[in-house]
């Protein structure tokens, strides 16, 4: 902006102007930001992932591998549901004599914490990733339809999203779990469906409007671009345009939100467990370990802190990775 009062922070927008002038011959009308992103993406692509990103990836890979191996029984773990009565409330790294092999101690019932945490990782990851896949697929499709077609389709879908978003997520999830359990009970006999499936569906439905809104907003801006008009002019059908022209541009935003979504779902599963509608004990999940043992926070804090720390690091890694994905994919704007 003209001289006065401005200009002390000569940062990105200024840089973009220089980049425009020096790196992008041929275009008279200013597209500064775009040029700059070209420069940034150029350097971004060459730049290696930071240490933080590698730590985050390493943590997530480790957790996933351990969860899978534990589930396959490939790890020398104790039975997560067996009570070692002598060892109830045993702290972590206890001396050998009293509690052989309980590396992370035991819970109030004397069950081995390490085994419960690693078995529990499976349930936690399954529920949170499953829920986000449900949200990703349905939210993505609905958001894409709303953003691409606009008009009445958009009005109706956005209204539905807003209604769902206006209900507090936990209450909505609670209601959905109750409803789904009820209907599963009717059709599936006394045993009912796997509670994990019900959780995936409930948390998935909660995340649909979130992912739907993000997808819609992104699809809306990309659908206004002239290459979409050009595809229409060539006679491409809407499905082809959405899949080939719009989706690849919307996907980065969706992916980064989905990674954050996994973290949110993992915490939500924990919250539901505390409220008593999470993964059903005795099957462990990080959330229900906290939920069922919460009364022992005073005398045996390790029972709560161990799963809480796992959730903390996993959520942190997912958040961090979500940011990295967005930063690396989003700046990939076309630029001349």
């Amino acid at each position: 902006m003209p001289g006065p009062g401005e200009g002390t922070e000569a940062t990105t927008s200024d840089l973009s102007r220089f980049a425009e002038d020096t790196l992008s011959p041929g275009l008279a009308v200013g597209q500064g930001q775009l040029y700059m992103t070209a420069v940034m993406s150029e350097t971004g692509r060459r730049r290696r992932l930071g240490v933080g990103a590698w730590i985050a990836i390493g943590w997530l890979v480790l957790i996933v591998i351990l969860a899978v191996l534990a589930q396959l029984g490939a790890l020398p773990l104790k039975d997560p549901n067996r009570s070692y009565a002598m060892c109830a409330r045993l702290g972590p790294f206890a001396k050998e004599g009293t509690a052989p092999g309980h590396l992370l101690g035991c819970d109030t019932n004397g069950r081995d914490m390490l085994a419960r945490l690693l078995y529990g990782a499976w349930a936690s990851l399954l529920v949170s990733i499953g829920a986000v896949i449900v949200g990703f697929v349905f939210g993505g499709v609905l958001g894409m339809l709303a953003g691409y077609f606009g008009g009445k389709v958009d009005t109706v879908l956005t209204a539905v999203f807003n209604v769902f978003l206006s209900i507090p997520a936990v209450i909505l999830a609670l209601a959905l779990v109750a409803f789904l359990q009820g209907s599963a009970g009717e059709t599936g006999g006394s045993s009912g469906a796997d509670p994990k499936i019900i959780l995936i569906l409930a948390l998935g439905i909660v995340s649909i409007p979130l992912l739907g809104r993000i997808t819609r907003a992104s699809a809306l801006t990309w659908s206004e671009r002239e290459f979409v008009l050009s595809a229409k002019a060539q006679g491409a059908k809407p499905l082809r345009i959405m899949v080939r022209e719009v989706l690849p541009n919307v996907l980065p935003a969706m992916l980064s939100i989905a990674l954050l979504g996994v973290a949110v779902a993992m915490v939500a599963e924990g919250t539901l467990s505390i409220l008593g509608v999470g993964v059903k004990p005795p099957t462990p999940s990080w959330g229900n370990i906290i939920g069922s043992q919460r009364s022992s926070l005073q005398e045996s804090p390790h029972i709560i802190f161990e799963p809480a720390l796992l959730i903390f690091f996993t959520v942190l890694s997912l958040n961090f990775l979500g940011d990295v994905v967005r930063a690396r994919l989003d700046v990939r704007e076309s630029s001349v």
């Binding site: 002239e226 290459f227 008009l229 060539q234 690849p248 541009n249 990939r332 001349v336």
Partner: peptide, 28 residues
């Protein structure tokens, strides 16, 4: 549609940034 075609003002906005030039031109 293929009989009538259009060229736009903004060279950035009119090409899909995530596709290579070959597939952009081949689309029709």
């Amino acid at each position: 549609r293929p009989r009538l075609q259009m060229i736009f003002q903004d060279p950035i906005s009119s090409l899909n940034p995530r596709r290579d030039v070959r597939s952009i031109v081949r689309e029709g």
